[in-house]
Amino acid sequence: MSRIVVISGGLGTPSSTRVLADDILAHLRDDLAARGETLEETVVELRELAHPVMDAMLTGFPTGELARVVDAVAEADALVVVSPTFSASISGLVKSFFDILEPDTLAGTPVLLAATGGTERHSLMLEFAMRPLFSYLGAEPVRTAIFAATADFGAGSAALRTRVARGSAELADAVAGAGRRSSRETAGFVDFQQLLAG
């Protein structure tokens, strides 16, 4: 069983961001099945957690449903992160969600990056805004990142499907090939003799 958490940063209901997330998820289910894995997915609409995310930013700790989502992300075998493009970059809400995670929460976690935007001219946002963020967080973004512009949901949809299929397959490979990540309960613990030794 592979636990995959999908983080969708769309603001509308339905949003094109969520539509893209669902497309990816459908592919992932098949791709994992083909590798003998079942999918246990959790889809998170960040819009519903916008206030708690900001509270966590101010207090330093997540509470309630947000705390459960943070735990699910920490325990996940892989993430799919789909952000709208705002002002030529990752949405502030999506960025804020990843800002409130404890250091090393995503260490070694495979991630499929995806974004939506009004025009395909924003597509490099995935490479200059999202990929460095997840590299910094120690996650392991797969090679393909998926951008869906408005046009991709119409006439360009065949090309989008190809990208979704490729990204999903890469993530499924990463998940199927990886060992389970270790528990973080004792993260940060160092024996005192070692501390004293500097």
Partner: peptide, 11 residues
């Protein structure tokens, strides 16, 4: 929330 300090007190 620094485990090192709990460890220090215990030591």
């Amino acid at each position: 929330r620094s485990p090192e300090i709990a460890e220090q007190a215990a030591y």
